[in-house]
């Protein structure tokens, strides 16, 4: 009886230990599975539109882009911040024209071309036409390919960059559209 008891006790111990280990293993497995699921999910793609400011390339989510506007008659508006070139009339709608390079303090859009192309970006609240030096292709990237913005970016520019992307071995800053679209309320 005693021996039996002891064996039994030892057996119980072992069983408990095993059960514990099993639980641990299961938990880890569940976690890893969950992670896999996450990875799976993150494999989804998003489209970005590439554009160039000076020598650098940037990207903007296609879903934030309303249209590309090429030939427009710009009307300058007095007393606006320096990065607002004025407004344009797009089919009866007045839209501001933002010099994105000025806004991000990257200098000015080169101005070599008479009428640089503009990307009309919008969120729920407002829209603006961003003037850029060149409009590139639309690229498909994995959603998890968006990395945090490079820490070396200038503080002034950091707020405009939502993340960085690797596209064809080129590092491209993803534009923070909401920051660009911050409504302008005063003259400062």
């Amino acid at each position: 009886m005693n021996v039996d008891d002891a064996t039994k006790d030892a057996g119980t111990d072992r069983t408990e230990k095993l059960a514990h280990t099993a639980a641990e293993v299961l938990k880890r497995r569940a976690e890893s599975l969950a992670q896999e699921a996450e990875t799976e999910e993150a494999k989804s793609l998003m489209s970005v539109l590439l554009f160039r400011i000076g020598p650098e390339w940037y990207a903007v989510r296609v879903e934030d882009v309303r249209e590309i506007y090429q030939e427009y008659a710009l009307t300058p508006i007095p007393c606006v911040p320096d990065y607002i070139q004025g407004v344009v009339n797009i089919r009866g709608e007045i839209i501001s024209v933002t010099d994105i390079a000025m806004l991000m303090r990257l200098g000015r859009v080169s101005g070599l071309i008479e009428m640089p192309a503009a990307i009309v970006v919008q969120n729920d609240d407002c829209a603006t036409a961003m003037v850029v030096d060149e409009i590139g292709d639309i690229a498909e990237i994995a959603t998890d390919g968006v990395e945090p913005p490079l820490s070396i970016i200038d503080k002034v520019q950091a707020e405009f960059i939502a993340g960085s992307l690797q596209i064809d071995s080129r590092l491209v800053g993803l534009l923070n559209v909401d920051r660009v679209l911050q409504p302008i309320g005063t003259t400062d």
């Binding site: 508006i77 007095p78 007393c79 606006v80 607002i84 407004v87 709608e93 007045i94 839209i95 501001s96 933002t98 609240d125 407002c126 829209a127 603006t128 679209l181 409504p183 302008i184 309320g185 005063t186 003259t187």
Partner: peptide, 13 residues
Amino acid sequence: KTLGTHLQKIDNV
């Protein structure tokens, strides 16, 4: 017409 959704209030305009 307004100055659009982006330019909420511009001095003098």
